Simulated assay, not measured.
Amino acid sequence: MEKIKQKRLALIFLVLGAIGGFLYWKFVGCTSGTCAIKSVWYWSTLWGAAVGYLIGDFISDIIKKIRTKKEVQQ
């Protein structure tokens, strides 16, 4: 449970990225079927989720470093 609390922001971004990837497939996608990532919904969704998680984890680490730095200064 503690791990989920620590990664909460990354998990939120994971869900948002998955939704974004699905919407990208739905509205932009590849109609010819020759595009490796955009041709089927699950690849776009997985890639969106992966990118969302990475961005969320990156932002979470930055926030953690800023909080640690403020605690040390006080």
Rank of each mutant, 00 (worst) to 15 (best):
L23M: 13
L23H: 10
L23T: 06
L23K: 05
Y24S: 00
Y24A: 03
Y24Q: 00
Y24E: 01
W25E: 06
W25A: 02
W25Q: 02
W25C: 03
W25I: 02
K26R: 11
F27M: 00
V28Y: 12
V28E: 08
G29H: 10
G29D: 01
G29A: 03
G29Q: 04
C30L: 09
C30P: 11
C30F: 06
T31R: 13
T31V: 15
T31I: 08
S32A: 09
S32I: 07
S32H: 09
S32G: 04
S32Y: 08
S32T: 14
G33R: 07
G33H: 03
T34G: 13
T34W: 12
T34C: 09
C35T: 06
C35E: 10
C35I: 01
A36M: 15
A36V: 14
I37W: 07
I37S: 09
K38P: 13
K38E: 14
K38V: 09
K38Y: 05
K38I: 09
S39G: 11
S39Y: 06
S39M: 08
V40R: 06
V40F: 11
V40Y: 13
V40D: 02
W41N: 04
W41A: 07
W41E: 05
Y42V: 07
Y42Q: 04
Y42L: 01
Y42S: 01
Y42T: 07
W43Q: 04
W43D: 00
W43L: 04
S44L: 08
S44E: 01
S44G: 15
S44F: 05
S44V: 01
S44W: 07
T45E: 03
T45L: 15
L46W: 10
L46P: 02
L46V: 02
L46N: 03
L46S: 12
W47G: 08
W47F: 15
W47R: 12
W47A: 07
W47K: 11
W47S: 10
W47P: 06
W47D: 02
A49M: 00
A49Y: 03
A49V: 08
A49T: 01
A49F: 08
A49E: 02
A49R: 02
A49S: 07
A50S: 11
A50D: 00
A50G: 13
V51P: 03
V51A: 11
V51E: 06
V51H: 03
G52F: 07
G52K: 01
G52V: 01
Y53I: 03
L54Q: 03
I55M: 13
I55A: 08
G56F: 05
D57Q: 14
D57M: 08
F58E: 02
F58I: 06
F58D: 08
I59V: 15
I59M: 14
I59K: 05
I59R: 10
D61S: 15
D61K: 15
D61E: 10
D61V: 11
I62M: 12
I62T: 06
I62Q: 13
I62N: 06
I63E: 05
I63H: 10
K64R: 08
K64L: 13
K65W: 07
K65P: 05
I66C: 04
I66M: 10
I66D: 05
I66E: 05
I66Y: 09
